[in-house]
Design a protein around this nucleic acid. Structure first.
Length: 192
DNA sequence: CGTCTTTGACCCGCGC
DNA sequence: GCGCGGGTCAAAGACG
């Protein structure tokens, strides 16, 4: 697999979408023209039907972002979960909760470029799913953000990307397209 | 040669 | 306690 392509041409934008900014969470660039690896023949313009249906989901949710386009196809549903993590290995059983943020995306490529650099550190077969789940960590020094990428076996075009943690740095790339999408989103918060 | 992926082993929590 | 499933580590290999 290749590295992330450094070529990104999103037009500059002065503002950051409120949703992603609120979470201080990685911004998903819903734009896969940069998916240079050829898992699927990306001979089209790189849209790959991504924009047609984007969803966000997670097993447990605190925050749900949902937006239904008038055509009923631009579905954008987001959930943020909190994951308990031990801060120390010893008796400091201080479990801190890390925010989790899962995107469910209809795409033929597994890896959605969100502007950050990720290093893959694991891959596991998932039960009841013929596709493996991949584990990535942000390579920025001191940034401990992780993400998981998983394709549903129910619907092979659905890719679930789960972010965990908050980036301590900015992306190197513009987040324009995502902002455009997020501008159409509504945010619903639910408490559990 | 440095960076990143691959992949089996290992660890840990949880349910039985 | 044991087995299973999910998550991580780390050595080895691939690649630019």
């Amino acid at each position: 697999m290749e590295n992330y392509s450094p070529i990104f041409h999103y037009s500059p934008s002065p503002t950051i979408s409120s949703a992603a900014a609120a979470y201080n969470s990685p911004m998903l660039l819903i734009n896969n023209e940069l998916q240079s690896h050829n898992k699927a023949n990306t001979s089209n313009n790189g849209v790959l039907g991504l924009m047609s249906s984007v969803k966000l989901a997670a097993p447990t949710s605190d925050i749900v972002i949902n937006s239904n386009h008038s055509q009923g196809r631009s579905n954008f549903v987001g959930t943020e979960t909190h994951h308990e993590v031990k801060s120390d290995k010893k008796n400091t059983e201080k479990k801190i909760r890390k925010p989790k943020f899962a995107f469910q995306t209809r795409s033929q490529v597994d890896i959605l470029d969100d502007g950050y650099r990720w290093r893959k550190y694991g891959q596991k077969a998932v039960k009841n799913n013929k596709f493996p789940r991949s584990y990535y960590r942000c390579t920025y020094q001191g940034c401990n953000v992780k993400k998981q990428v998983q394709r549903l076996s129910k619907d092979e075009e659905i890719v679930v990307t789960t972010y965990e943690g908050m980036h301590s740095h900015a992306t190197e790339k513009s987040t324009d397209n995502f902002e455009h999408i997020l501008s159409q989103m509504q945010i619903y918060t639910t408490s559990y």
